[in-house]
Design a protein around this nucleic acid. Structure first.
Length: 274
DNA sequence: AAACGCGCCTGCGGGC
DNA sequence: TGCCCGCAGGCGCGTT
């Protein structure tokens, strides 16, 4: 499931392949994704426009067009955004096909339909409503000790839920929240305001480290992806705790515990994380 | 006002 | 073998 590093990997892989190419037509096969697709938006602002670049906001990919409109894509749980030859079979659960001037097709496929594809009309991306209440980018300097101190000092919620709250910081889903807390040696269930300054600093540093490491690993498969124009298979970062219930902790050898926090599976080492 | 819980959706794996 | 159930997950919204 794509979190920030996977989305960033996809963005980096697609940008050189898409930039400067024109969208000749858009085929909408499914309108009902997370948000209802409005075909008229594509006719008005997307068809016959050229792609100028791809950016990312949290887990959203933004495809910028030369009329200053943009297509905003969220991959949800199972979304894929891949390039195909026109002659290749259209896989089941393909919802939108962008027909490009380089004779390739950019296809959005999403079995669970938790993803979304929306159009931001010209000059409106800066005020795109979906982005209005998003928190800071975790790899930017805005995500720092001072910011997180402010966000945690009065919070009675579990620190893991604060870390996963997109209104505070974007892009950190269940996997990277678990991993970040392991590397900062903090129990995921700890009440946010109980964290010491030292622990907050460590958590910020660990989150950036884990995300950067994952992006670096994603970069490894980037080459395969570009050469083959196939689906991206992630050479996943070796995970320290996520999905490792009852397996030995890489640090101390004691079994990793699994619990549920905010309805999400939560993995931690009771010996290393306090 | 903050925090919690639900619904959305399909594939897959485990249990019977 | 085949069926059913529960889980996986982000996000917005309704309720407390």
């Amino acid at each position: 499931m794509p979190e920030l590093p996977e989305v960033e990997t996809i963005r980096r892989g697609l940008e050189p392949a898409l930039s400067s190419h024109r969208i000749l037509s858009v085929r909408i096969l499914t309108k009902k994704l997370r948000w209802e697709i409005i075909p008229r938006d594509f006719e008005d602002y997307v068809v016959n426009k050229s792609i100028t670049g791809l950016s990312r906001r949290g887990k959203y990919i933004v495809m910028h067009l030369d009329n200053r409109a943009a297509v905003v894509i969220h991959l949800g749980m199972s979304g894929r955004l891949c390039l195909f030859e026109q002659t290749e079979d259209v896989e089941k659960h393909t919802h939108i096909i962008f027909n490009l001037s380089n004779r390739m097709e950019l296809r959005f496929r999403d079995p669970r339909r938790f993803g979304s594809v929306e159009v931001a009309p010209p000059y409106s991306i800066a005020s795109f409503p979906r982005f209005a209440h998003l928190g800071v980018e975790p790899l930017s300097s805005n995500f720092n000790f001072q910011y997180m101190k402010k966000k945690t000092e009065n919070s009675t919620r579990a620190i893991k839920l604060v870390l996963m709250n997109a209104k505070i910081v974007v892009g950190i889903g269940n996997i990277y929240a678990n991993e970040s807390l392991f590397y900062s040696r903090i129990d995921p269930c700890r009440i946010a305001r109980s964290l010491s300054e030292k622990e907050i600093k460590k958590l910020v540093k660990s989150a950036k480290m884990v995300l950067n490491a994952a992006i670096k690993k994603g970069g490894t498969t980037l080459n395969d992806f570009r050469n083959a124009y196939g689906e991206p298979g992630f050479f996943q970062l070796e995970l320290a705790v996520y999905g490792r219930a009852d397996l030995p902790c890489s640090e101390c050898g004691n079994p990793i515990h699994k619990t549920v926090l905010g309805g999400r599976s939560t993995f931690f080492c009771p010996n290393c994380q306090k």
